[in-house]
């Protein structure tokens, strides 16, 4: 009992041992993965920042082009009328334009 009280405030030898082993294991697993990812990181680091802006805006542009390929029947399905303002392709383009402007303005 007295021994237990004396040592209760400090980590037990086994606990320290396990923590060290776990950390060793973590580093051992991380090393090869880091080696795999490092060349990719170096390449991405070397890219100019306009590439980032192009990728972000490209995501919106690709989404917009894809929406434009959707058929008229599909986007109007369930709509009571086929008036122009209910064309969800136009809604999507109207949605994307301000996002493209924001990423153009604040993208780099």
């Amino acid at each position: 009992m007295a021994d237990a009280l004396e040592t209760s405030g400090e980590p037990q030898l086994n606990e320290v041992d396990w923590a060290d082993r776990l950390e060793d294991l973590r580093l051992a697993i991380a090393a090869p993965l880091r080696a795999l990812h490092a060349p990719l990181d170096q390449w991405l680091d070397s890219l100019p920042m306009w590439v980032a802006q192009v990728c972000a805006i490209g995501l919106f542009v690709v989404a917009g082009l894809w929406v434009l390929t959707l058929s008229r029947d599909f986007v109007y399905l369930g709509s009571p009328t086929k008036s122009r303002w209910r064309d969800l392709r136009l809604w999507s383009i109207a949605l994307l334009l301000p996002y493209i402007a924001v990423y153009w303005w604040l993208g780099r």
Partner: peptide, 16 residues
């Protein structure tokens, strides 16, 4: 003041 932060920057939000 930019949305796209370099890949290697010390931030949780790199552009990639």
């Amino acid at each position: 003041f930019t949305l796209m932060v370099p890949h290697g920057a010390q931030t949780p939000y790199p552009w990639t």
